[in-house]
Design a protein around this nucleic acid. Structure first.
Length: 306
DNA sequence: GGCCAGGTTCGCT
DNA sequence: AGCGAACATGGC
């Protein structure tokens, strides 16, 4: 087991505490993500090698600097570079927020949130596959149930590494889930239908028929068309992937129940906004709707809005 | 026990 | 094209 330490320089403003907390949904642990005592942990899966990344902040919001410790076997320079890129992506260090903040300044709805959450960057999943499986898992169920199912999924099927007495899990690989089959996913409380979707997707990824990572170079419209042609994936999921996996700035899951409710509360509407009304209102936030979505969810999860 | 929760598909009009 | 049911599970 080797270990190496390196530094990352996020684009300011960068609030490490908020960004790491968002990644764990403001819990100490959230399935594969951990954030406790100021240290963010995530087991990385780099070319089938497992490395534990431990990250802490050395700087401030306006002069940010992160210390990253990487631990694992086969730690050569190539894999160190890949692990570094992966953790940088996970923690969203390369995002420029200034244009979004300028827009938000003129919007009374957003002003209090960008002020309270200044420096929150959008965390990403390492792979599109991970975000897709998690999105399907989370469809239609409460966030509380989703959290339990996620944890069960990664603890049952995720590659594991023990470091000084603690067992860390990475997200299951497509080959892992394909091998468990529908019965294996039913065993971790997926519905038969969701299990079928995930198995189909996993098989597509393995065979190369479904090139999820290839989506990174496609336009937003092309990505939506391709993703929604997959069984189990609708508009909500496609837009969720814009935000969580692809790093696009204008994702907006307008049919999201919690998002509609939150916006209704902020706008003080007598009755809850319909998805169509929510979508309509969102247009003047383009092309920064991913940030708006994340800031609203962060406000919800952290208790700024109840 | 019933109803709902950070959707999607399928089968009806 | 638009509407309602079914889907698994846990919490209230």
């Amino acid at each position: 087991m080797k270990r190496t330490v390196l530094n990352l320089e996020p684009i300011p403003p960068y609030n490490f505490n908020l960004t790491a907390a968002y990644a764990t949904y403001f819990h100490q642990t959230y399935a594969a993500e951990m954030y406790q005592d100021g240290v963010f942990h995530r087991l990385l899966d780099v070319g089938n090698n497992l490395y534990l990344a431990r990250v802490r902040s050395l700087g401030t919001v306006d002069s940010p600097s992160l210390e990253v410790e990487i631990i694992g076997a086969n730690l050569d320079n190539t894999n160190i570079t890949k692990a570094q890129q992966q953790i940088a992506w996970i923690l969203g260090i390369d995002q420029h927020l200034s244009s979004f903040y300028r827009m938000a300044q003129d919007d009374p709805i957003l002003t209090p949130f960008v002020k309270a959450l200044r420096g929150l960057h959008v965390p990403h999943t390492p792979s599109i596959y991970e975000a897709l499986v998690l999105a399907i898992l989370g469809q239609q169920i409460s966030s509380h149930v989703a959290r339990m199912l996620r944890t069960l999924l990664i603890e049952t099927y995720g590659p594991a590494l023990e470091i000084s007495g603690t067992i860390y899990h990475s997200f299951p690989r497509a080959t892992d889930l394909a091998a468990t089959g529908i019965a294996g996913l039913r065993a971790v409380k997926f519905s038969t239908r969701k299990a079928q979707y995930v198995i189909d997707i996993s098989n597509g990824v393995i065979s190369g028929q479904l090139d999820l990572e290839g989506l990174r170079t496609w336009s937003d419209e092309e990505v939506v068309r391709m993703l929604t042609s997959i069984r189990g994936v609708g508009l909500w999921t496609a837009h969720w992937l814009f935000i969580r996996a692809l790093g696009r700035t204008d994702g907006f899951p307008h049919a999201d129940l919690a998002l509609c409710r939150t916006l209704s509360r902020l706008l003080n509407t007598a009755i809850p906004l319909t998805p169509a009304a929510t979508l309509k209102h969102s247009h003047h936030w383009s092309p920064f709707r991913s940030y708006v979505t994340v800031y609203l969810f962060a406000a919800m999860r952290s208790g700024l809005i109840c």
